[in-house]
Amino acid sequence: MENKRTCLYDKHVKQGALISPFGGFDMPIQYSTIIDEHQAVRTDCGVFDVSHMGEVTVKGADAERYVQHIFTNDVSKIDAGQILYGMMLYDNGGTVDDLLVYKMAENDFLLVINAANIDKDWEWMQKQSEGFNIELLNRSEDYGQIAVQGPNAETVVEEVLGIACKELTFYTVKTIGDVIVSRTGYTGEDGFEIYASHNYICDCWDKLMESGRCKPCGLGCRDTLRFEVGLPLYGDELSADISPVMAGLSMFCKLDKEEFVGKNALVDQKTNGVAQKLVGIELEGKAIPRHGYTVLKDGEPVGEVTTGYHSISTDKSVCMALVKAEYGKLGTPLEVQIRKKTFPGVVVKKRFYDKHYKK
């Protein structure tokens, strides 16, 4: 089956981007270098094509009750214009997907899901909708989306795109006509997401490129940026086999809610513990731990790397890894096998970088 293309695909090709398959789409991985693009977002402003993400709307008399049923976080506690992060789960606590839920108005929600999971999520959501008085629509084909990220993102969105966004606080959303503007980000920096028609998004991209005030960024640095601040990627740090409790994301699962799919499994995991947990590991030296590499304790395998890099912002070799829970305490010495050698490391917090970091 051929990969899909976003509305900005031709522009990426024209700009000389390295294109590669991701989540069923042909997506730009980098334009210049991953390091340049990463640093642009950390210090100035970068723009990403994230039109591959999925959008599902839930409206109707039972919309809030339905979202409460499928979502681990508690949307009854937020007002219109606010956003929550959380997960959709299988009955056994495994993760269907992690997502953002935008409360657009009373009983009117926008769910933003991962590109690779659109078809699977949509099928699962439809199955869960039985008995609810809602209108559930898959709007993924209708929206283009860009993410403007970095310390100067607010100024660029205001001045280059002419979109008033200053009043948006972190994890809030507003609409301007048919355009949806939110302030969340997936990079550890300030950032805005703009959802609109394909034509409008193409026009925004052109204005941003012509301004010279932000760098086009590919999915390569999107991964290095999210990883450094401990944000999960579905398929690596969350999956059908990795629950939010195992991933250390219990804070986004409100177990005091009356019910949601997978709640009983999470209660059991919180009560009785889990066999594996996600940890951060910092290695000695500059060897790079990659996804799938074995983690060892005194030469015995105890887990594997989910994501690893030589961190661009901290100049350290670090990884997230799923290990046996008994080896998950901060300060625990572990090793990572990289090709034929093993390299010593230590368990650290998964947030490897924050704004106050000094090399």
Rank of each mutant, 00 (worst) to 15 (best):
M1A: 14
M1I: 13
N3F: 05
K4C: 02
T6F: 05
T6Y: 06
C7N: 08
K11R: 15
G16H: 14
A17D: 00
P21Q: 02
F22P: 05
G23M: 02
Q30E: 13
D36M: 07
H38S: 07
R42Q: 08
R42C: 08
M53I: 13
T57A: 03
G60M: 08
A61N: 13
H69S: 08
F71W: 09
S76D: 12
I83Y: 04
G86N: 03
M87D: 10
L89T: 09
G94C: 12
T95R: 02
D97P: 00
D97G: 11
D98Y: 00
L100K: 01
M104Q: 10
F109A: 13
L110I: 11
N117W: 01
Q128C: 15
S129P: 13
G131H: 07
G131R: 05
E141M: 03
Y143A: 01
A147V: 11
Q149Y: 01
Q149T: 13
E159T: 09
V160P: 12
A164N: 14
E167N: 10
L168V: 01
F170Y: 14
Y171I: 08
T172Y: 01
I180H: 05
S182M: 03
R183E: 12
F192D: 04
S197T: 12
Y200C: 10
Y200S: 11
D203R: 14
W205Y: 02
D206G: 06
K207Y: 03
K215D: 01
P232A: 04
Y234F: 14
I242E: 03
G248Q: 04
S250D: 14
K254M: 06
D256G: 11
N264D: 14
V267N: 04
Q276S: 06
K277G: 15
G280E: 05
I281R: 06
E282L: 05
L283N: 01
G285Q: 11
V295K: 00
V295C: 09
L296C: 01
T307P: 02
H310R: 08
S313D: 13
S313N: 15
S317N: 06
K324F: 00
K324N: 09
K329V: 05
K329C: 07
P333G: 03
V336R: 00
V336M: 00
I338Q: 13
K341S: 06
K350W: 11
F352K: 07
K355M: 10
